[in-house]
Simulated assay, not measured.
Amino acid sequence: MAFTTAGLNRLEAIHHPDNQNSGRVLTKAGFIHVGVRNQRAWDGTTAPYELYARQRNST
């Protein structure tokens, strides 16, 4: 829907490094792991969040 209705070309998602199950869910949804991004967590600390992306033409 994001690709067809909204016309987006790329979706990105991140998850906390302690929550590897979220990475598995993203992979099953067609996202590909593209790297790590430092992100401030809810408690004010910085953590290396896993970054995933899905392109319009992904299956």
Rank of each mutant, 00 (worst) to 15 (best):
E12C: 09
A13G: 08
S22F: 01
K28R: 13
A13R: 05
T27W: 04
L11E: 05
A6I: 04
F3G: 10
F31T: 01
T45E: 15
L51Y: 09
A47Y: 10
N21M: 09
V25D: 02
E50Y: 12
V25A: 12
E12Q: 10
L51R: 07
L26A: 03
T59Q: 15
T59Y: 06
N9P: 06
D43V: 03
V25P: 00
T46M: 13
S22C: 05
Q39R: 13
A13F: 02
E50M: 14
V34I: 15
F3K: 00
F31Y: 03
Q20H: 13
R40Y: 08
D43Y: 00
D43C: 08
H15P: 00
N57D: 09
T5D: 13
A53Q: 14
R10E: 15
I14R: 11
F31C: 10
A6T: 07
T46W: 10
T45A: 02
A13K: 05
N9F: 07
R10F: 11
R54S: 01
G35D: 08
G35M: 00
D18I: 07
S58V: 03
E50V: 10
Y49H: 10
A29V: 04
S58K: 09
D43G: 03
T4M: 09
R10D: 09
P17A: 07
A47H: 11
Q39Y: 01
A29C: 08
F31E: 01
D43L: 03
A53W: 06
A47P: 01
N38I: 07
N38C: 07
G7R: 02
M1S: 11
F3V: 06
N9H: 13
L11Q: 00
R37Q: 15
A47Q: 12
W42S: 15
Q20T: 15
P17H: 03
R56V: 05
Q39G: 09
A47N: 07
N38L: 13
H16R: 03
Q55N: 12
L11F: 05
T59R: 11
V34W: 00
G7E: 09
D18N: 09
W42F: 04
R40K: 12
L26S: 01
A6D: 11
F31A: 00
